[in-house]
């Protein structure tokens, strides 16, 4: 019994220590964001890698999700003669929930993994130590540009995802469910409020921060060897996905419960 309690206590302490380390790391990254030097070139590169190259994966995910959502809402709505709500529910569902969450998760899979693998490889091959000996702070040079780029580009990716998702719903609605094209668009716009869109974009920024912090943290604190790189990558994707879903719940309750 005592052994079981000791194990539980040890695990709890370990978890709390890990949370503390991640929070300190995130705090340190944020403080470095505000102090020069600023690495513009590295930031531009990160913008391109994280933002631009994630567009196809976010766009395709949103397109199919929007289409499937239209079909589901139509089928569900038919049970109580509410098929007409398809355009408004698709648009609200996309911008408030599915756009940010799916973009966050897809980018977490692509970007968080890639950041963790890249930084972990740099650590294993002593490139991070080399940066220090060359008078460059690895946190400032490697983490800050990536975190800043992900935090700024995720809302844009979410906006693009929202639009493509709504378009996917529109395509299905008009071509498969016999909706009138003009009517579908009118209903989409009429019931959509500005706060629906902005809340999703705020979520996107938070998710971008989370996924890039987790990628950088696990990459820069990876173990040695190929196994260390692999573990850092897995940990980055798993932790950022879970944190994105948890943050989504917290933000939704904060934004939409009175």
């Amino acid at each position: 019994m005592i052994a079981a309690l000791a194990t539980l206590g040890q695990s709890t302490l370990g978890l709390l220590a890990a949370i503390g380390r991640v929070c300190l790391f995130a705090f340190s990254v944020v403080t470095h964001m505000l102090r020069p030097p600023f690495y513009i070139r590295e930031f531009s590169q990160a913008l391109l890698n994280i933002g631009f190259f994630s567009l196809p994966v976010v766009g395709l995910t949103a397109l199919f999700t929007g289409g499937a959502l239209a079909l589901q809402i139509y089928a569900g709505g038919a049970r109580f003669n509410a098929e007409a709500v398809v355009p408004s529910i698709v648009s609200i569902g996309m911008v408030r929930e599915l756009g940010p969450v799916l973009s966050g998760l897809m980018v977490a899979g692509r970007v968080s993994a890639s950041i963790a693998a890249e930084l972990a490889s740099m650590k294993v091959t002593e490139q991070i130590d080399a940066l220090v000996t060359l008078s460059s702070n690895p946190l400032k040079y490697l983490a800050v540009p990536r975190v800043l780029a992900a935090t700024l580009t995720l809302p844009i990716l979410v906006a693009v995802g929202d639009s493509i998702g709504i378009f996917g719903g529109y395509l299905v609605g008009v071509n498969s469910l016999d909706f009138n094209a003009a009517g579908y668009l009118k209903n989409t716009v009429t019931f959509l409020e500005l706060w629906d869109v902005t809340s999703g974009l705020i979520k996107g920024a938070v998710f971008g921060f989370i996924l890039s912090i987790m990628g950088c943290y696990h990459g820069m604190n990876s173990g040695r060897g190929a196994q260390g790189v692999g573990r850092a990558t897995i940990n980055a994707v798993v932790s950022s996905s879970i944190l994105i879903l948890a943050a989504n719940y917290l933000l939704t309750s904060l934004f939409f419960t009175s």
Binding site: M122, T125, E126, Q127, D129, A130
Partner: peptide, 8 residues
């Protein structure tokens, strides 16, 4: 550095 530690 032992392995060079050049930035890829």
């Amino acid at each position: 550095f032992q392995g060079g530690a050049l930035f890829d």
